[in-house]
Design a protein around this nucleic acid. Sequence first.
DNA 1: CTTGGCACTCCAGCTTTCCGAGTGCCAGTC
DNA 2: GACTGGCACTCGGAAAGCTGGAGTGCCAAG
Lengths: 342, 342
Amino acid sequence: MVHVLDERKLDVLRAIVEDYVATHEPVGSKTLVDRHNLGVSPATVRNDMAALEEEGYITQPHTSAGRIPTDAGYRLFVDKLSTVKTLSPAEKKAIASFLTGAVDLDDVVRRTVRLLAQITRQVAIVQYPTLTRSHVRHVEVVTMTPKRLLLVLITSAGRVEQRIVESPGEVDERLVSDLRSRLNTALAGQRLSEAADSLATVTETFAPTDRPLVAAIVTTLLEAFTDEGEQRIAVGGAANLTRYGDDFERNVKPVLEALEEHVILLKLLGEATNPQTLTVRIGHENPYEELATTSVIATAYGSRSEALATLGIVGPTHMDYPSTMGAVRAVARYVSQILADS
Amino acid sequence: MVHVLDERKLDVLRAIVEDYVATHEPVGSKTLVDRHNLGVSPATVRNDMAALEEEGYITQPHTSAGRIPTDAGYRLFVDKLSTVKTLSPAEKKAIASFLTGAVDLDDVVRRTVRLLAQITRQVAIVQYPTLTRSHVRHVEVVTMTPKRLLLVLITSAGRVEQRIVESPGEVDERLVSDLRSRLNTALAGQRLSEAADSLATVTETFAPTDRPLVAAIVTTLLEAFTDEGEQRIAVGGAANLTRYGDDFERNVKPVLEALEEHVILLKLLGEATNPQTLTVRIGHENPYEELATTSVIATAYGSRSEALATLGIVGPTHMDYPSTMGAVRAVARYVSQILADS
DNA sequence: CTTGGCACTCCAGCTTTCCGAGTGCCAGTC
DNA sequence: GACTGGCACTCGGAAAGCTGGAGTGCCAAG
């Protein structure tokens, strides 16, 4: 009586998941044998179902109703019973052509969100590429007002960071251009992580009178280098939440709220660090109580094997995992490719 | 029998609107006299109500139910029967301190959206400041790969535009720095509209062999100057949609869909061009059939009297207009102030 | 181990009932 | 003439009752 993973029992579970995902209605033994050709009678299926329920993979909303998969059921389905669906050539082509139209990094991200939301018909989340792995391309210092400077940091990923710096005193234009060139010679081409070190030495080459301003700028730059906190995120496809079913207050509201809190979203995407792997969090597996009825599918994307950032989707637990996972994987690959090219 | 705008009838309408906004339930003659001291009997109020219904300001969901305001009723209420509520000093202070923490223009916009959504408890929309009115602060040209350049345009509004330019041939570093300095001397300080003209003359000062690259860059810059198409928008507070009531499919879905379509949002905000005026569109007054149950409150914001962009909120027609209008106005003012300072 | 049969359960959806808030109208009062 | 109290009427929505069917568990037989 130890959990014997009988082959047919697994077939039954698979059938239940597929049916429930398609209809969103509890599925009974009769309809099951009708729709899938399992080659056995309803009574037999009932026995298997009883066993599956015993083992915690399915459950009944109430006595004398059909069964629906539990989180554990979906988990087993995803891990063992399904294969990630590959997209059709037409879809692939559509993705590629949609993404290649992007004009800059921000546009790539915006397009990706839109695309992902559209093909998965779920809520899509895309993290902007983080800075840490990329290189300093250029640093620009611009005088805006006599006491205010604008710092612009351009990275190899094509990302532009801007910061405003308040100067302790009136800004000397000669100093600014001097600083600009010294910063660039010291930093250009370096990884952001290394650049932080180089910055320290730059300060010392300046005359003591200039130090306050230089220090202010260096501090702000350092902040921009190491700023993990300001990881930006784009969200799209919230309208797909309307397809969640009817228990509005319980299902939709928490998701909408989470979407506003980018910190939460980062945490949801968080664990995906390998572009080769899809992270799937089902129902209670994810770190937020309120999102117990939703699943997250995430993966990393980026140029070559370096993970730059993560992207993924959020949807109801009863989603079509094979297709959705396929779509997420495909989009991640194409974005990575686009980024590698540019 | 011609529409006589009896003073008391207006009081009744005002009372109905206020009550309905507070309770979201049809309001009857009895409850009305109980809650507001109108000094007359329910029967009298009933007569007035009949007249107001005749004139199209209120309606009954069904016979023998209370009355609810029509779009026309809200319109009259907003135009004649209410005064925009001013915020409490505490609220004002909160706004100011929340906004002053912003590090750059993007951050100002993000914070504004959040703030607006929070205090109005509606969906907030903020358009990023447009370029046309501002001045060129700096143009930066950076070589990314031998055949690819990154253009960065920094405007007086603190906005940074980036564009990638494909070079026709290998890029000559000397030419790039030459171009950089000439572009800056020619353009710096000019309004974007004037700058477009100046650009033309710059091209001519280069040797014919360099022309192809220069032309490519100039074209892209021109694009950036006049790019109205890429007007960006930030949206927040979608979670507030859960308070819309229960007719999910009809009320919430269209709004969520509209929020995805930034073109639609721009059109919704569109008409507000004067920072002194609040534009209010009630129900059917707004240009989208699907948003017939929602109202939009928008206004322009920007430094001094120049309108830079618009912001506003979207909410159900049965919202608290005086407070919401007050909040929108206040936020617009503070943002304008912040922008003027920087 | 599988299967058909059978008694049992219980929700979903329909109908019915009923209450009360709200109305319109009318005759009487100030 | 404007307001009011009274009264008959309407109708939606909540509560209660009814019913059919889908589904189950169990059992005895193949």
